[in-house]
């Protein structure tokens, strides 16, 4: 058996998804909901939190079951677990607000095929004890939510002149129609990626030792 790299601390575990491996800005994963539901900050946040819920719940269950699940059927098992949590979150959102539910549309059910979730279950949760698994999933989920919120805020501000439904510029604001349409998602994502990479590059220059 070879020497294992030092176990990451709980804080590192949690922060991984928020900065170093951010699903939206670094891994560019789960782009369907990123593009489709980020027309407003509320939708983006709800989608992000729903994904966090599914991610964390399934990470816990997968981690708890990791010694009992045979290799051959692990993907099937993970998908059953993820699908159940998606169904739960689907009901929860319906109970919370029907308006939000219609706005998010099929994308709630489609969380099940979001590659972040199966990816994390396979790459992390199935190999780690419950606590680090949950912490990592929580960080990933929040990182995803932050990414969605970053897109959703910009698109809502420019596309509707509002943020979280609050009018920012008064009644005469000219909405940028394109921002609430699919191309706007690509423009804004491109802008954020530009900013994120620029920040990373600068950070790398400032501390070259890492």
């Amino acid at each position: 058996m070879n020497a294992q790299p030092p176990r990451p601390t709980p804080l590192e575990e949690f922060l991984e998804g928020i900065w170093r491996q951010n699903p939206v800005f670094v891994m560019i994963l789960g782009m369907c909901p990123v593009m489709a539901v980020t027309v407003s900050a509320v939708n983006a946040l709800a989608m992000g939190l729903a994904t966090t819920f599914v991610l964390t719940g399934s990470a816990l269950l997968v981690s708890l079951l990791r010694h009992w699940v045979p290799r051959e059927v692990r993907i099937a098992t993970y998908i059953v677990i993820i699908a159940s949590f998606v169904t739960v979150v689907d009901y929860l959102i319906q109970a919370l607000s029907l308006q939000l539910y219609t706005a998010l549309g099929a994308f709630i059910q489609l969380i099940v095929v979001n590659c972040i979730i199966l990816g994390r279950a396979e790459a992390h949760a199935s190999k780690n004890p419950p606590l680090p698994a949950v912490l990592n999933a929580l960080g990933m989920g929040l990182g995803f939510a932050i990414g969605l919120l970053a897109l959703g805020s910009v698109r809502e501000i420019l596309g509707a002149g509002r943020l979280f439904g609050l009018a920012l510029f008064g009644a005469d604001f000219q909405p940028w129609g394109v921002m609430v349409q699919p191309p706007g998602g690509f423009f804004v994502l491109g802008g954020w990626l530009l900013l994120f990479n620029w920040l990373k590059k600068r950070q790398g220059r400032l501390q070259p030792a890492r």
Binding site: V80, A83, V88, Y91, L92
Partner: peptide, 25 residues
């Protein structure tokens, strides 16, 4: 056995969520 067990646990989870939210929905 594993799949059956997992499916049963998940099924219970879904049913509970459905029942719990039905009235509100």
């Amino acid at each position: 056995r594993t799949l059956g067990l997992v499916a049963a646990v998940c099924g219970a989870l879904v049913v509970a969520a459905y029942q719990g939210t039905l009235a509100a929905v």
